[in-house]
Nucleic acid binder design. Sequence first.
RNA 1: GCCCGGGUGGUGAAAUUGGUAGACACAAGGGACUUAAAAUCCCUCGGAGGCAACUCCGUGCCGGUUCGAGUCCGGCUCCGGGCACCA
Length: 817
Amino acid sequence: MNPVYDPQIVEKKAQEAWDHSACFVGDENRPGEKYYCLAMFPYPSGRLHMGHVRCYTLGDVIARYRRLKGYNVLHPMGWDAFGLPAENAAIKHNIPPAKWTRDNIDYMRSQMQRLGFGMDWSREFATCDSDYYHWEQWLFLRLYEKGMVYRKNAVVNWDPEDQTVLANEQVVDGRGWRSGAVVERREMAQWFLKITDYAKELLDELDDMPGWPESVKNMQRNWIGRSEGAEIDFVTEHDPAQTLTVFTTRPDTLLGATYVAVAAEHPLAKLAAETDAEIAAFIEQCKQNTTAEADMATMEKAGVATQLKVRHPLTGDLLPVWVANFVLMEYGSGAVMSVPGHDQRDWEFAQKYGIDIVQVIEPTGDEACDLAASAFTEKGRLVNSGEFDGKTFDDAFAAIVTALEGRGAGRSVTNYRLRDWGVSRQRYWGCPIPVIHCDACGVQPVPEADLPVELPTEVTFEGVSSPLHKMDEFLQVTCPTCSGPARRETDTFDTFMESSWYFARFASPDAKAMVDERAKFWAPVDHYVGGIEHAILHLLYARFYFKLMRDEGLVDADEPFKKLMMLGMVLQDGKKMSKSAGDAGDPQKLLDRYGADTVRTAMMFAAPPEQSFEWSEAGLDGAARFLKRLWNMVHEHAETGPVPVLDAAQLSPQGKALRRKTHETLQKADDDYGRRQQFNTVVSAVMELLNTVGKTQATNDADRAAVQEAWVSGVLIISPIAPHIAHELWTVLGMTEPLVGYPWPAVDDSALKQDSLTLVVQVNGKVRGQIDVAADLDETGVLASAKADANVQRHIEGKTIRKEIVVPNKLVNIVVG
RNA sequence: GCCCGGGUGGUGAAAUUGGUAGACACAAGGGACUUAAAAUCCCUCGGAGGCAACUCCGUGCCGGUUCGAGUCCGGCUCCGGGCACCA
């Protein structure tokens, strides 16, 4: 009798064997080319959901496959442990964020281990470990010295009732999610990293990253948003020493500018508000917009005229200054010139407020141009522009910029949509920003010897504000410059800071520096797996940070992630899974009922990696049935006793067909794992192989050897996906070397050879028959055979053959008329 | 609003470089085994006609290119992701 397949026993046994042999511990000295496989580390939200299961199974499948292909693999795991949910839990349940986080990590680690991921747990760390964030503070201070860091005002969402800053997701319909109070935009001094200094490199390098999906590269290109244009200075009427600078991509339309618009936070808006209650009221009203760009883009465009005027740099005409709610202070100089004739938004604004619309561009072709109906936004020929009339875009651009340069009133510039990275957060649960505020000396960096600035973890939350504000032992410090009393910064870093370099730390997790030489060995990550929701922010910040580290000499490469696999979302009720959506996605009960291999197989079988799909338990029974069949069939085969060495010459036709299927499956699986990165079809290929073995009657020793070969191959192929059952069956098949790292078998081309092929015959593109032909039959022979088919004859009879198309090994199309 | 994806049977999907649409599964229906059930095994399974051979229709919608389009092009529509403080 076969032993019954009991995943709980099989999986425990396999995991103990892996632990015992330490086969997943990364080691620079192992043979084989290094291969760093990494799945984006999780935020320890409490329990794994099916999105995690998918991501980490995919990472594990890739890592295990690479081991079979002879690579020296590093596959680590850790925790993105700082963040908002821990504070929310603290406020709600009065648990210190550190304890809540550590408990979650312990539970989620046990779930990952239960899933059998072949990860190197010896390198594990959490970003809330001071050993980790120490070096983030250290790098920040290095960047401070280099001038890569600066402080300026930026707007935040302010909850006036809770007296706290809210994240965008905490603002619901313009109100604080807890207090319900109307949220205000408020300016605060914040730290910024000069990512814009690297905009060009971040953009240009995308052209040389073949391992990234085009869609992600395009998203990043659009995000960085390089545009060629000009900066133009408008002298203010009230103070000729002051200028208002705008950026435009269309300096050719300068003569059509009929007003300028500034952001509500712009100094000119504030100046105008001093003497004008209507403007002050409008600015107040603008404060009720959130800081989210999506809200800005969809809201009703509105503005108010000021009494201020600026002088047109070429005509000297006075143009009115408007304050408009759609101008972003964060982008460019917080001011735009408005050309309603040739910009749709400006046109709508001018229509609404009765501002002049002047045509300065006319079509060169037959494009429609009716400024009474809409703006003409195409490039064309200049009119109503004095000396520039008749010029087309490129000439006009150059001539107008030259004219401006001559007056010192403009210059051509390359502008980026990308804004500098604001890294300050007015939150407790994050990495302390290592600066000190001294009344006498101003902002002072914490001396390197005093690092890390440790975040106190013994805290009690009273209300929603950061407990740091009330902790004198944290707050009160002496100024490193004058030794007088000073105050420690209470803001912490954006958590994207931690996730921007953790992959480098995994290479040398115990280094007494940010990283050591081992980072140069393992970096860059060869295969990075993660959700598509990280396509822009995380991946762009990490690329930037890696360049900062490179420029410090810490790493060698220019880019951190060679190959990027972007996963579609595992949806729940049509939306991405989140902490707030409950634990419907918790895999725990599935692991208890079916075991890890079934959960992993079902997840891999459900869809290809990049596709989003709604999670459903429907596939689990099928996956469980498949593994059980595999278990039973391999045991039945093993019970027939020892198998002789395969003698291909002695195979029966069935044995030969099975052997071909085995090698086709090896070839397909290798291609799917390695090149196509589509794993659902690996599972189906093994299912097909299993079905083929099931139909094979092994009548002689050679056939039994072919069956053995089929099972050894099938078990090996499925092992990255269902590693525990594979571990057990490997031994059942009499294999003595460990399966982890066993060399992937070479495909035997002679086994793939076919004597005859089935071709499809079409008449006028419709399938009319199938023919079996010798594999080496030439085109004339194939055509003759096709025309001999009875059904094909019926369709070509009495008609003229106009064209004959033969696609080798596939089909024949006969075109008749 | 802007940027990036996606839409194929009752369901998850496959079709890799423009070449047989629906592989492999799930669910369902029928049958075998069983006192019965579970498990297992076998058969059917896009729609319509024929009830066989075969024919017509069919990959979100409309149009185009091609001997041939799920695949390429143009226009739409619905769904998802991102939009700088969720991670």
